[in-house]
């Protein structure tokens, strides 16, 4: 065997070995995630309904129907609003929480543990707990409001307050996670760096921008992005807190997909909505990748 041949043989062996290791994971992901998403694109061009027993090709008609329908328009708008407002407050409050938990105080370990609780509890459980908390007649919040103002707010029965409640619960759930990630960044900064910046008279804000942010930026951006995407595709929260009501005021895209796909078996529309959701996710991911490139983060 020539040296060249041996080299080639060795490379081949390395590729085989690589796929032995990586192959199973890739295979499973392709079969249960990548293929289904591609399949969804195909299904979105069908009028496909299990209850009415139809399955026919209709091209883009599902999309035309969705995009020209006022109800779907408002669902799409609310989805974007929901994610944008949630993310903004999660970042803001997450920073607050991170600083709070970074301070020195008695019982810090315990409080840091408590911080994890909203995040490790099944979402559906906290969603029901909040629904019960916000209930118009029997809820805690309504009772307190009654004691203070003399009237019982029906928070889940007005579009604006139901939306606010849903977003608030979402923030409640995800802020601790943000806080945790930012806290990790804070802790990786040597104490001296802060002290010397303080000595130089840098304000809190400046220290934050120039020291804190860079330290945790890669993780915050990555996890923050995935977090946004997960929130967009989550149905547990809406299912538990408002079930999309009153009317369709708090219906988000993912919840609509669930209703069309698994409650009404209207698979054509469900798939078309899915394609729209994938589109939104793709846009957000591209923005994320751009940020990564710009700041030269690595995975």
């Amino acid at each position: 065997m020539t040296i060249h041949g041996a080299q080639k043989h060795k490379t081949l062996k390395r590729y085989v070995l690589f796929f032995l290791f990586v192959g199973p994971a890739l295979l499973v992901r392709t079969a249960t995630s990548i293929y289904p998403v591609i399949n969804t694109f195909h299904l979105s061009t069908l009028n496909y309904n299990l209850i009415q027993q139809v399955r026919e090709f209709i091209g883009m008609r599902n999309f035309i129907y969705i995009l020209s329908n006022e109800m779907f328009q408002s669902v799409l708008l609310f989805t974007l609003f929901f994610v944008a407002v949630s993310t903004f407050f999660q970042l803001l409050l997450g920073m607050g929480v991170a600083h709070l938990l970074n301070a020195k105080f008695i019982g810090r370990r315990l409080v840091r543990t408590i911080n994890l609780i909203p995040w490790v509890i099944p979402m559906i459980v906290s969603a029901y707990a909040f629904r019960w908390l916000l209930a118009g007649d029997y809820g805690l919040i309504s009772d307190w409001a009654f004691r203070i103002t003399g009237s019982r707010p029906q928070l889940l029965l007005q579009a604006s307050s139901a939306r606010a409640s849903l977003i608030a619960v979402n923030i409640w759930r995800n802020t601790p996670f943000m806080g945790l990630v930012i806290l990790a960044g804070l802790q990786s900064i040597p104490e001296e760096l802060y002290e010397s910046a303080k000595m130089d008279g840098a304000s809190w804000f400046k220290r934050f921008i120039h020291i804190t942010m860079p330290a945790s930026a890669a993780t915050v951006v990555t996890l923050g992005l995935f977090n946004i995407i997960w929130q967009m595709s989550d149905i547990d929260l809406v299912l538990g807190v408002t079930q999309g009501g009153p009317g369709t005021a708090t219906t988000v895209l993912a919840f609509r997909i669930y209703q069309h796909g698994m409650l009404w078996f209207d698979w054509g529309i469900a798939s078309a909505l899915s394609v729209l959701l994938v589109g939104l996710v793709a846009v957000i991911s591209l923005i994320g990748l751009a940020i990564f490139k710009r700041y030269q983060f690595t995975l």
């Binding site: 994971a25 890739l26 992901r29 079969a31 249960t32 995630s33 990548i34 293929y35 289904p36 998403v37 399949n39 969804t40 299904l43 992005l225 995935f226 995407i229 997960w230 967009m232 595709s233 989550d234 149905i235 993912a254 997909i257 669930y258 796909g261 698994m262 698979w267 469900a270 798939s271 899915s274 959701l277 994938v278 996710v281 957000i284 991911s285 995975l299």
Partner: peptide, 19 residues
Amino acid sequence: LVLSMALPPIVTVVPLFQI
């Protein structure tokens, strides 16, 4: 592989149901 984390599970539900 890592980016496939972004594929929303809800989107895969109908095809997965058929599979």
